[in-house]
Structure formats: C-alpha cells, structure tokens
Amino acid sequence: MESTRQRLIKILESNKNAYLSGQELSRRLDVSRTAVWKHMKELEKDGYKIEAAPRKGYRIVAFPDKVTKNTLRWGLNTIRIGKEIFHYEQVGSTQEIIHQLVQEGYGHGTVVVADEQVKGKGRMSRPWHSGKNQGIWMSLLLKPELPPVQAPQITLLTAVVLAEVFASATELTPQIKWPNDILINHKKIAGILTEMQAEQDQIQYIVLGIGINVNHDQQSIPEDIRHKATSLKIESQKSWEINWLIQLILETFENTYEQFLDKGFQSVKEKWEKYGYKIGEEVTISTMRKTWPATLVGIESDGALLTRTNDGKQKKLYSAEIHWGDDGYNANP
C-alpha cells in the first residue's frame, strides 16, 4: 500500500505545470486540508520545492537531489529490488548493515544506501574511499535459488549492469576489467564487492556492494590513487543526480537479474565481452605459486576468465592476481 506521501508526490508530478488546490488534493488523497499542508511541509524537508499560490493552490517546482528514503522510493520502477530501502547519512559500511538486516529477517531486494561510509570495504577489507554525497555507496541483499558455484556470475552481471547504465546515461565508454571493476579511460570508476553466506549446496544470501565515484572533483580523490581512479564528473565534466542514477541502476539490475534467472548466463556473457577490458591483449597472471604471461581470450560460459598461454594452451581462471601493465595498476589495488 502506497503511503499518502507517495501518492501526493505522484499527483504533483503528473500535474507538474498546473496548480492543484488544497481542496482538490484533500479530496483525491482522502485526508483533511490540514493533513495535506502537513505533508507538504514534510516534503519540503526532503528537498522538494513547492510553490503555494493564493487561490490557485500548490505546484511542485523542483524535485530534490537530496537522497532520502522517500526520494529514492518515489518513481522507482521495480518490483522486488528496492522494495525495502534504508538510507543513512553515515554508516561504517553498507555491507555490514545488510548483514544485520538479514538477522532481522529482511529479504531479497532490500537496499541500503549511505551518503558516506567511514569504513567502506573493498576486497579483503581494504579501505574504500567513500566521501560524503560524492558517490553511490550501496548494498543489495539477494537470495537467489542457485547453487553456490553459480553465484560469482552475479558479480559479473552487476558489472554489466553498471557498464550499461554508464553507457546509456553518459557519453562515456565504460570497460569491465575481469571480473568486475568498471573503468573509464583506463581508470577505475566503480567497484563491486560480493559477499556470500552459503552452505555446500545452497546459498543463504548474497550481499552485493556497489561503490561508484560520481561527483568527485580531481582534488577530492586521494592523491595516491589519482592516477588510477576517476569519477563520472571528472570524465564527463558535469555533475550527476545521485537519486536518478541509483534508480536507474536498480531498475537495470532487476531486469538483467530476472533475465539471467530465466535464460542463464549467456546473455550476460555476451554483454560482458562487449565491455571486456584488454581482451586479445597480453597480461601477466600470478597465483600464490607462480607467475606467467597470457593473452586474454574472453570469458567462459560460467564466467571464468579464459586465457591462452604462449604455448597456445587455453586455461580457465577463477581466481588470480592479474597484472594489467598500465601504471602498475593491477586487479586488486
């Protein structure tokens, strides 16, 4: 059931250029005129700008770019992803919050968004710089009915979703560095961290963490990583509305995810390879025991990286350190 607040926003949005009288609104929402007025005041707190003209009524003049639970929910065109949204101004990490929400019984599709993370987590708990209102720091809770061996495919799927969103929303050309870093002009713009709780043969849940540098200026990226990290603003020379981007990501994710469950990994694989970074080029691969040069061929039907060694042999990789040879930046900064 939609809240009165959300219905009010919807009515105002569909009559953007016209004034609606308090009486009309009170009739359509079936609440008193005083209640309408109170809701308007609350909307203003969320960042909506509402013009009230004598004898004409109310008119919405600006939608907020402030991220709140309401502004994220409103206009979000998804069925399950984002059905429950939690927004925080500051958290340790959105991943941790999801782990807690699972214990409280929240289910598939729950989303946590933060303006700022003070303990943003990257791979192996490496810190992820996630400053206030500059980027998208969010985590999704997923409970797929898949065997655990297929779960890593969701990480690749998410990389495809982000690449598609960047490609459609901006004029930039994103690339995906296996398995899941998003690059623009050879610099990292977004990262994905996937954590799973599973038994041998059953996934309990997956926490999908997404970090995107959106409105960082050159100066707000720490100096030591400036040569290898960038933001949408730096690359496109303009600021981006966070709410809108989050909604676009959630909607694209839901569609791609449903398609994946329905039709399998093939459709994801094709899109992934379209964005694949350094496919056909030589890189250096290392595991704990050895290091060798190899050419990237593409990805396998299960998402593994397909490589070809100098003696012509093809090898599937599920986990390895890859040295990409540009600015000493490797897969796991």
């Binding site: 690749l156 961290l193 799973m196 041998q200 997956i206 986990s319």
Partner: peptide, 12 residues
C-alpha cells in the same frame, strides 16, 4: 574467493 565473490564458509 572466486571471481571476486567472497564466500564465507560455515562449519555446518
């Protein structure tokens, strides 16, 4: 870890 998915394994 496989393809950057970190699987926390429980004792069961």
């Amino acid at each position: 870890e496989a393809m950057k998915l970190f699987n926390e394994i429980e004792a069961e």
